[in-house]
Amino acid sequence: MKLKLNIWRQKNREDRGEFVTYHLDDVNSHMSFLEMLDVLNQQLIEKGEQPVAFEHDCREGICGACGLVINGYPHGPEEGTTTCQLHMRHFKDGDEITIEPWRSKAFPVVKDLVVDRSSLDRLMQHGGFVSIRTGSAEDANNTLIPKEKSDLAMDAAECIGCGACVASCPNGAAMLFVSAKVSHFALLPQGQPERKRRAIQMVQAMQDEGFGACTNYRECEAVCPKRISINFIGMLNREFIKASVLSGAEKGGKYRSK
């Protein structure tokens, strides 16, 4: 099939960037979207031009490295899939495809379609972890977890941190990402020691990184390759309000009535 591609090209962080149009003549419908870009890059290299920079790693939909806004949808027109798992059979001969990087103040463009997503890593540093006992491993099933809880925690833990939620949100909010992390740990016994601190600190960090605020558009859920539910955003709101407004001071010695 033949395709017309409008691709965002930007030399470096400082460059203003622009859209460049490319024509591809022999695209195989069995190719993945990234393989189609590989073909384009091979042609560019042979012509002595700079190939289009894009991020990718596992190419099997589990690492979260790839991510392009394809014709207005993060990860493309198919629901519940990553860019690497999107195949060219979902496009038609003669299609015009516009490819853009994630757009967010918190995700500055590094080059072409590659953005710097370390803001998500910094959010994780504010509470996306649990404290564990070091030393020899515990016996399996030593900590009992109800099946429903572990299933629900796993639904949240499916998040691969690709940032499509931020890219799709009309407000550039990172609520779905943070809600997945906070909910994941809040549901499990291992997450309890840092539970309140995690909710407060990750939400505050989200503010400091320049993400927007949620206005319940539900676009994040619609593009999430792992179909993380916005019910977790409800859970995050609950966790945050409980931790920051409703719960009493719990520092030693301050929990007295007088």
């Binding site: 320049g210 927007g212 558009y217 539900r218």
Partner: peptide, 28 residues
């Protein structure tokens, strides 16, 4: 919140489509 959201995406998309946002949400 409006001004926070305005600043969260300094460079707009050339093509951006929505799947879920309905009229009432869009016009708030």
């Amino acid at each position: 919140l409006f001004f926070q959201n305005l600043g969260a995406r300094p460079i707009k998309y050339r093509v951006k489509k929505t799947r879920e946002t309905d009229l009432s949400a869009r016009t708030m």
